[in-house]
């Protein structure tokens, strides 16, 4: 294909571009614009400058959600990756049944967030019933409930990526270390960990952005209860738009801030990955 084939643009690109513009490009630009206006439908917007952005902090919902989300992201990124890495180590020792174990550990990842939320609501409420409380009794329960759910869902996924990373380690390096008498711990620290560093980067950022954007699980498990204290950022934005906790303009302004945070995480990831490629090559 070369330049004279420009006439094929309408066939090859236009359908996708049209759908992409309707679903993403136009709503994205409109979204940025509307975050500076007050409106009920998209067509009656009135310019209000930065007022939406300052109204975000009129009540504590957004700050609460931000704090809750950051705590959740920290705890789940650490727990998910520690469990996933050690399970990957166990599953790369060539024991029988490795494939079966991998199949089982990965499965929860495929189940949708709404279904996952109700599964864990049943189980956690069943446990808490013995103590005479429910999941929505205190935000602490909701928090750890979400962490447990996230671990159950994400460990298998991250484990699979770590397994791929560990299996990519050249076997002669391992054998040489064993012949030289390195202890299993030394092998782990001096060979496995440095050589799977790229997998760590991928997994850390994947868990980080997935945890940050969590919505379905949050909605199904606690729906923010008690009194919106377990609402994460995505759910708080949804509530601002649709549950009458504010105006649509404020919701859109919150969404812009949310976007900036998520994009910043992705940008840092890009820099980290590129940086490493630069030093190793």
């Amino acid at each position: 294909m070369n330049r004279k084939n420009n006439k094929y643009f309408p066939i090859f690109v236009l359908p996708t571009l049209l759908a992409f513009s309707i679903a993403f490009v136009i709503p994205f630009l409109l979204g940025i614009g509307l975050s500076f206006t007050e409106f009920t439908t998209v067509t009656n917007a009135k310019w209000t400058g930065l007022r939406n952005y300052s109204s975000i902090f009129a009540n504590k919902d957004f700050l609460n959600a931000l704090l809750f989300t950051v705590k959740f992201v920290l705890v789940s990124v650490i727990t998910v990756n520690i469990f996933a890495f050690f399970m990957a180590l166990m599953l790369t020792r060539k024991i029988k049944g490795t494939n079966l174990f991998r199949t089982v550990f990965f499965m929860p990842n495929l189940i949708g967030g709404i279904v996952l939320g109700y599964i864990w609501q049943l189980i956690l409420n069943g446990i808490l019933y013995h103590y005479g409380v429910t999941l929505t009794f205190s935000p602490v329960y909701g928090f750890w409930g979400l962490v447990i759910l996230m671990n159950w869902q994400m460990i298998g996924y991250m484990m699979v990526i770590y397994i791929a990373g560990i299996q990519n380690i050249p076997s002669d390096v391992m054998e040489a270390a064993k012949i030289d008498g390195a202890s299993p711990f030394q092998i782990l620290r001096k060979i496995t960990l440095p050589l799977v560093a790229p997998s760590f980067t991928i997994c850390l950022f994947l868990t980080m952005s997935n945890s940050f954007k969590l919505f379905d699980q949050n909605l199904a498990l606690t729906a923010g209860a008690p009194s919106r204290k377990t609402a994460m950022l995505a759910l708080d934005i949804y509530n601002t738009f649709y549950a009458g906790n504010g105006t649509a303009g404020v919701g859109q302004a919150k969404a812009v801030i949310f976007f900036i945070i998520v994009a910043a995480i992705a940008f840092i990831q890009l820099r980290v990955t590129r940086g490493r490629e630069g030093t190793t090559e």
Binding site: I22, F24, V25, I26, F28, F215, A234, A248, F258
Partner: peptide
């Protein structure tokens, strides 16, 4: 266009959810 496609992967759904729904309604 390629870079805009790549960029869209980073944008969380909440950023476009309200406006996309309106555009789709219209």
């Amino acid at each position: 266009l390629y870079y805009v496609f790549a960029f869209s992967m980073v944008v969380p759904f909440q950023m476009v959810m309200f406006t996309m729904t309106k555009v789709a309604n219209i």
